[in-house]
Design a protein around this nucleic acid. Structure first.
Lengths: 201, 201, 201, 201
DNA sequence: CCTTAATCGAGACGGTACGTCGTGTCTTTAT
DNA sequence: ATAAAGACACGACGTACCGTCTCGATTAAGG
């Protein structure tokens, strides 16, 4: 793809530059071979660095992938505000779907199981994965409450988590792609009723 | 655990006997080292058989684990029937939690990511994992409809899937153990409202 | 050099065949990159086998090289018998020089230092390196005694070792090649006088 | 051993002071882990300096060890002069043995093989290793010639080299320690006869 | 005395080899 | 024919060391 540059002599990448190069190589590997096929060797080779530089930053493969996930999580998506709760929810779920369909999604799905034995890492990842989605959904519901569409008491963490949880559940059990009508079903049969609105058929 | 019997000479197992021995060894390994730590070598050694005998039956590690999962799925749990929907739902979710906490749960969680790239295996596993739970929840809801507690129209596949999906979601993002009050929250804040019943505070 | 044959499937070498292939690859590597440049990876690659197959037989690099040395030591050279002690000694030293100049010599010189910390291996190697040469020299001297050239009492282990020791000493301190006149000097100035014969100028 | 002094800030060594610190650290490492276990990292760490400071002075590990050897070679031992050739020779060989038993000996034995591919370094080392010993033996023999014990014609470079060569040969093939009776055998069976004296039994 | 250049210390970097482990295939021997 | 055992070829693991580099700190020397 690129000409082989020997970074041993000459401009040697360090610090943040190298960090970013590795993270991007990780995402590229995830897209190409998936989470299960990801190897430290492969990432190092693609990033034109050494395994030592990887292990100096991340003790395990999971930590590396977690860093890649968090790296992409920085770019905060704008909260959907279409003027109606239903379309807002559809747009919000679409953001979740898009994220799960990207290389990051591959990583998210892959790491969910590997890390369960490491509570520390689990908690760390939850922050960048779950809470972001929860904030998204909660905000959408609050906008609807301010508009008078729903009552504020219906907004609970459990309700906010339901939408993304169902989307993730579909991805884990059925895999991509996610049919569009399914997204509508989740909104109409679950989320809107939970918000206290009459069901749409 | 058992006395070491050299199956090279003497009573050599084959057919179903050997099949079961391997499956049970797989479950034992899952309980001991988890899905990530499971190896074909380890299973073969624990089952006192050879890797060839494993690969003759299951081409991949995932197939082996899938077989172990399906093996335990045979024992059909009785549908909870306590006389009320709320307690039925709590009991049903408890069954799901129990399953996820067992060695099988370790396998289920582990295999979810590995298999996404193999649609064939994904579909196969879905049958033994998801549909079982869906049938459980759907049955509980039907009992309530027959009792007149809820209206039959509220029962949709999406609603039936919501409970187990939220439980699984918690396991994947928070890990065990599952607090009991969380189960109650799922029932009271999500499932009962979805069934058309007023929320319990 | 040769077409890459994937030995994973197809005729897979085992036992003695594989053993010999590895030993010969080791000698080839010694000839090409020397003892210091010898790597297990390199040998495995040249022999088209795996590192595991190497380590299964020889726990250390030294053991592998030792095996290569001993493998070539099997071919017993005939004892020189030219009819005169002086020419016999010259021929005997020539054999020593030839051995030290060959790939085996590279190995012998290289392993001498690495193994000193392992008394077990040291003793083992001594047998195939030193004793062979001692036997050679002792035999040559005995032939001379039988011919009446020298007295039998002059033959001691110390005297028999002197010749090869001086040759090795030159190799270690000066390196190859070994000038022919030097061999003559060793014979005329050291070995013959030690055997009780008048010095030749 | 010593209190950890951070030389980054505070009294920073350079020039000869640093040179000596590194050489001494090299000798200490040789004594502790041997030549094979010697690493540039280890020496730098022990000397509390950086690898760059090492490589600025010595391009290779061999050069570093060679410098350490030569550093200790400065202290010229007095030539033995006991009044008799035999005791002088025993004392001279004892000096050789002592040198080979010290950390320097470990270095000498180790470097003999590594450097054979670098003729330049080989020649350089020969000066500090071999010629010193040769001068020692030659001087002892000359003293005996002046005393009338032996004839001057028997003194040749080859004869002078024989003693140390046999001692080194034993160290390389048998390893330490060197039995005292062996030293006597070398003197009585080899060196004295070579000097033209009757053999001692 | 102050600047300036050289040197030092620490350690990151790209790379290679280490010795181990697991994979999936195969050969061998025994039932 | 199939079972048990394990050798085999391969590749990834995580570590150690190599020799090079960057960086800031600290000296010594000259103006």
């Amino acid at each position: 793809m690129e000409q082989p540059v020997d970074h041993r002599r000459g401009p040697r990448r360090r610090g943040e530059v190298l960090f970013n190069a590795i993270v991007e190589a990780t995402l590229a590997e995830l897209a190409e071979v998936g989470y299960a096929g990801l190897t430290m060797d492969g990432v190092a080779q693609r990033a034109r660095t050494s395994k030592a530089s990887l292990y100096r930053r991340w003790p395990t493969r999971q930590d590396l992938v977690a860093a890649a996930i968090q790296h992409t999580a920085r770019t905060t998506e704008p909260i959907p505000d279409t003027g109606g709760l239903r379309t807002d929810l559809l747009a919000a779920l679409d953001l979740v779907v898009q994220r799960l369909t990207s290389p990051v999604g591959e990583a998210v799905r892959g790491i969910l199981t590997d890390t369960l034995r490491d509570p520390e890492l689990t908690r760390e990842l939850r922050e960048s994965m779950v809470s972001g989605r929860n904030r998204l959904l909660t905000q959408v519901l609050r906008q609807a409450a301010e508009r008078g569409e729903i009552r504020a008491e219906t907004i609970t963490p459990r309700v906010a988590a339901a939408g993304p949880a169902l989307v993730l559940h579909h991805f884990l059990t059925q895999g991509p792609p996610m049919p569009v009508e399914l997204r509508a079903q989740i909104v109409d049969e679950v989320l809107l009723p939970l918000a206290g609105l009459p069901r749409v058929q």
